[in-house]
Simulated scan of single mutants.
Amino acid sequence: MSAAAPNPILAAGTVCWRRVVRSDGREQLMVLLIHRTKQRDVSFPKGKLDPGESMPQAAVRETHEETGLTVRLGANLGTIHYRMPGNGEKTVQYWAAEVTEQAVQASTFRPNKEVAALEWVPLSKARKRLSYPADREILDVFQRFADRDATETFSVILLRHAKAEPRSAMFPEDRTRPLADAGEDQAENLIAMLDSFGPKRILSSNAERCMRTVAPLAHHLRKTVRVHEGLSQEAWDAGSTDELRSIVGKVVRKGKNTIICTHRPVLPDVARELALATGSLPGDYLQEAAALPPGGFSVFHFSRTHPGAGILGVEVYPVRH
C-alpha cells in the first residue's frame, strides 16, 4: 500500500505595482520583483501561511516581511501549483497590490539572508526577468488587467453576520438578537482577514447581530459603522428594495473599499444590485457568492476608473472559527 500524498504547502503572495512619472512626463506602470538570496532567483513576494492564518493575511504579512511595504489586497490573480523537492506540492495564491508613495517612503527594507534586492521594473520588461514559468503566468493575468485599464480597483465585501442567539421569548424583536459566544469569536477572527482588503467604509443592517459583527473591525480601523435600515431583514420581509438599491448605487459611485454586513435572505439582492449597478453579466456566481454561512463573506472587485466594465472577480470565504 502506497503512502498517502503529503498535504500541499500553502503560501500566498502579491504582485506589487505602482505608477511612476518618466522623464518625458508620461506615466509608466511598474511591478516589484524580489531577488532571493539563497535561491538566486527573481520572483514575487510570497511565503507560507502561519498556523491558523488565512491566505489574504499571509499575502499581506509576507509582502511586508520581504519588502518592508505595507499593502492591502486588490484583485485576485489566481493560484499556482508546483512540485517541491521530495515530491511535495506547493499552492500559492496571488493578489495585485497597489503600492502608494507613502508606503514606498515608509519601507524598512534592507538586504538580508532571504531577500538580496528589490527591483522595480516596467511591466513590459518584467516577464523576461522572472525565473519561473508559474510566476510568468500570474504576471500574464495582471497584464490582462492592465490592458483593460483595470489595475486600480476597489472591493465590496458582502458579509453575513456572525452566529447569533436563536429566536426566543427573550428577544421579542428579531433585530435585538445578539451574537452567540461563538459569533463573538467569529467577529474577532474576522478582523485580520477583512483588514487585508483595506476597507474604508463599513455599512451594516440596524440589527444588533450585524452591528456587533462589524464592531471589533470598526474599532480596529477607527471607523464609524454606517447603519442602514434598508439592509435589514425587516425591510426585505416588507418587500422594500428602494433604499437597498440606493445604498448599493452610492457604494459603486464612491468607488471605495466597502463592507456591507447584512442577513442571509438579503445577500442575494445585494449581489444582484451590485451586478446591475456595474453592468455585470448575470450568472450562478452571484448566487454562490451570496450563499454564505454565518460569519462568511464574499469579495467583489471592480475597476475604480471604469466600474461600468462589470465585476472583475469574486472571492468567497466561508466561516472561520
Rank of each mutant, 00 (worst) to 15 (best):
R26E: 13
E27K: 10
L29I: 04
M30V: 06
M30E: 15
M30N: 13
V31L: 11
L32K: 00
L33T: 01
L33E: 04
T37Q: 15
T37E: 15
T37G: 14
K38G: 06
Q39W: 07
D41C: 12
D41N: 14
V42I: 11
V42F: 07
S43T: 11
F44V: 01
F44A: 02
P45H: 14
P45R: 03
G47T: 05
K48C: 04
L49P: 00
L49N: 11
L49G: 02
P51E: 08
E53G: 12
S54N: 13
P56M: 08
Q57E: 15
A58W: 00
V60I: 05
E62T: 11
T63G: 10
E65M: 07
E65S: 07
E66I: 04
T67Q: 13
T67P: 06
T67H: 09
A75C: 14
L77W: 04
G78V: 04
I80M: 03
G86T: 12
N87V: 04
G88D: 14
G88F: 04
V92C: 11
Q93D: 04
Y94E: 03
E98F: 05
V99L: 05
T100M: 07
E101C: 03
E101H: 05
E101Q: 07
Q102L: 06
Q102P: 08
Q102H: 09
V104G: 09
V104A: 09
A106N: 14
S107H: 04
S107V: 02
F109W: 08
F109T: 05
R110T: 11
K113F: 03
K113V: 03
E114Q: 11
A116D: 14
A117P: 10
L118T: 05
E119F: 01
W120G: 06
P122G: 10
L123F: 06
L123Q: 12
A126P: 02
A126R: 01
K128Q: 15
K128Y: 10
K128L: 12
R129Q: 15
L130R: 00
Y132W: 13
A134T: 12
D135I: 00
R136G: 09
E137H: 10
F142T: 00
F142V: 01
R144N: 13
R144C: 09
R144A: 10
R144M: 10
D149I: 01
E152H: 13
E152D: 15
